[in-house]
Design a protein around this nucleic acid. Structure first.
Lengths: 123, 123, 123, 123
DNA sequence: GTGGTCTAGACCACC
DNA sequence: GTGGTCTAGACCACG
């Protein structure tokens, strides 16, 4: 069963999108494995303090992307293969790095300073 | 006159909020100086390809926060105390970089790969 | 034993409601007679390809309306007074036919076309 | 502007579906013409006493079927050509007639009686 | 208990 | 004012 312990909700983006991102990151990082069970709408909704429909929307979109399999009355589970995992991971990494670069550029930092900062923070 | 060259719009948050964030970050980075002029609603709206009302909303909220003031029809930007600006800037940079580092670590990327990625994306 | 041969399921209303309507119409038409036996939940469920609980819900509501009664484990169907049944039937037929006529008139079909269509669809 | 004077809401099917049916029937019967303006979400919602979102759902599905054109900030209007109108009309007529035939069959009426009834009710 | 759908209200961007 | 989206709560069919 997927754990949502590390999930932190912010107000910047839609909740259902944050759930999608959390699960995608989990899959990309290997923390969430194929055929792993996901919490039901109600369980996750009460865990996050949101409406079950918000969770439903996230799950539905993940299902449309082929990352989840749902069967009415049964538990839903993750359905990804290795190639898909790698594809998702590559896309997420590029997005994260691009966003960070843009923010730092905007704050007037130089490339050299940025790299030094990354090196320092990595430890 | 404030430049909006580095402004990149996303669809995740309201546009007026993105404009506010951009100006706040500009002040923090020192790119926007005290008493510097800001584009009129119409000019910025046509520059960003959005509705003048959207720009108006952003300016109005900045005005309420005391970061902008009207002066005989034209608007100008008020920067806060220099030392404070630098302090805020350092904090923002560290936050951004830390967030990026954490996200990339979570996806299982190595430090060397991360730095190579940053260099490539910086142009 | 009540026959469900003519039962056609649609997706517009709840299944249990369709079962209730079918039995009520059967009583009105005289196709279902007083004290006639109804299929058990399981038999009807497998016949219609639905969940036994769905049939159970329909039977329960019919029982509350006094149209069905339990008798030593088996269920039987209670028809109301003969004259009343005929009266209800005439009214239902007229309603159905009037509704169909109005809909088709509204769509600009001629009487002759309508009759030809009915003949064709009747088989 | 499309009139909803003759619209009567029932509880048997979803409200948004009834709105769709009403508009489709209007198009099929010629009562609603191409390029005709449709009421805004709010106007129709307050007219029918339902939530604007329910109207929105109906309009959205009609748009997906290519029967409506929406432009943000502007009025929406009907967008159908002759061939499409005839296609919709044929489909609706068949559905209505089939439903009527099934209901009457279920009430134990004969084909001859049904046709006599239709003829009588048509006047 | 499970997932699926309908209705509702508030907020957003745009004209 | 317009259409579009997010969140919410209730109900349904099914196991």
């Amino acid at each position: 069963m997927i754990s949502f312990d590390g999930f932190i909700m912010n107000e910047k983006s839609p909740i259902y999108m944050q759930i999608i991102q959390y699960i995608k990151r989990g899959i990309a990082s290997g923390a969430i494995k194929n055929q792993e069970e996901i919490p039901s709408r109600r369980v996750l909704a009460s865990l996050l303090g949101v409406n079950p429909n918000t969770v439903q929307k996230a799950y539905h979109m993940l299902e449309e992307e082929g990352l989840i399999e749902s069967r009415s009355g049964a538990k839903s589970c993750i359905a990804v293969d290795e190639a898909l995992v790698e594809q998702i991971r590559a896309k997420l990494i590029e997005n994260d790095a691009t966003a960070a670069v843009n923010l730092m550029k905007q704050l007037g930092i130089t490339k050299a300073e940025a790299i030094r900062l990354i090196e320092k923070l990595w430890e």
